[in-house]
């Protein structure tokens, strides 16, 4: 019982929540770029929080369900069709054998998550199915390759006897300007007052140099004292400031250690927004209280992991 992929699009990757416990030997965690959409796609189906899905970046994506299932699509604004009939993201839907799913190139946002009841069934490497192309880990072939036209992705044929919709207040608007909360950590206090003022007062722009590893932004240079900086562990969302003063936000496939000063971290809630941002999107940074962000994340996790 498989999903037969007719068109994989620009970048489609199998992802679960990521590969943990191996960063000490340089293995990146990976995982879904937009964890908000990923969590909802599993939640709509009463899946376990870690069940594997297909992260579809840009698309367009076309596939046949070869067995009965209930599926969900969450994430970017895409035109989705099942057998030519329009369906909407942030919902779950029933599929019969032979049904044909199409997702267009997104009109807004960048990544969609396709989940099936019970999750896609593939072999784990180092405790995770997440595909990391750079590390040649995970995915269908366990070599980190992206999905290609003609691939078949196994799933169990499980049908939920209901379909669901994500409440409107939890579906994002994809704006041309996004506000990203900065946790004032790492070398925040070692940057000059004027560097911090620049970061918070200027608008930055998402450049085309953005991928699962990091997002390069451009705007007024954040002043950084050129210094020999000792490499240290890089946490999710870290904002590196290289010598040219242009921020780089480190994402799921980041390298585990790095030698640039970091002016803080983007809170995980707002990384979901950034991960849907296309080149040209404007970014406004603001200072975010760390304990408030932690409490929010804990609440989010409690909700999405409650069935596990």
């Amino acid at each position: 019982m498989t999903l037969h992929i007719k068109q994989a699009g620009v970048l489609s990757l199998l992802q679960d929540l990521g590969r943990y416990g191996h960063q000490d030997v340089g293995v990146t965690p990976g995982g879904p770029m937009d964890s908000h959409a990923f969590h909802w796609a599993n939640k709509l189906l009463d899946n376990a929080a870690n069940d594997a899905q297909i992260e579809i970046t840009m698309g367009p994506f076309q596939a046949y369900f070869q067995a009965e299932t209930t599926f969900s699509v969450c994430g970017a604004d895409v035109e989705a069709k099942l057998n030519g009939q329009v369906i909407f993201p942030w919902h779950s839907w029933q599929a019969s054998p032979g049904d044909f799913l199409e997702l267009s190139y997104p009109s807004k946002g960048l990544r969609s998550y396709l989940a099936v009841a019970g999750g896609f069934q593939i072999t784990e490497t180092l405790g995770s199915m997440s595909s990391v192309m750079r590390d040649q880990l995970g995915g269908l072939d366990q070599q980190g390759h992206k999905l290609s036209d003609g691939d078949v992705v196994p799933y169990q044929s499980i049908k939920r006897h209901y379909t669901r919709t994500v409440p409107k207040q939890f579906t994002p608007d994809f704006n041309n300007v996004i506000r990203l909360g900065v946790l004032p950590t790492y070398q925040f206090h070692e940057f000059s007052e004027s560097a911090r003022t620049t970061l918070f007062n200027e608008l930055y722009t998402v450049t085309p140099e953005m991928d699962r590893m990091g997002y390069r932004l451009k705007g007024k240079a954040v002043e950084v004292k050129q210094q020999n900086f000792i490499s240290e562990g890089i946490a999710l969302g870290a904002i590196q400031i290289p010598a040219n003063g242009q921020p780089i936000v480190l994402m799921r496939d980041r390298q585990t250690i790095g030698g640039y000063p970091k002016i803080g971290c983007i809170c995980q809630r707002d990384l979901n927004l950034l991960s849907q941002a296309t080149p040209g999107t404007k970014v406004q940074f603001f200072e975010q209280d760390l304990y408030q962000a932690e409490a929010e994340l804990q609440q989010v996790q409690q909700y999405f992991f409650e069935g596990d």
Binding site: Y20, I230, E232, G233
Partner: peptide, 12 residues
């Protein structure tokens, strides 16, 4: 503990 990243002078 979910992950540990030792480096030259620090542990994340």
């Amino acid at each position: 503990l979910s992950d540990i990243v030792p480096s030259y002078t620090s542990i994340l």
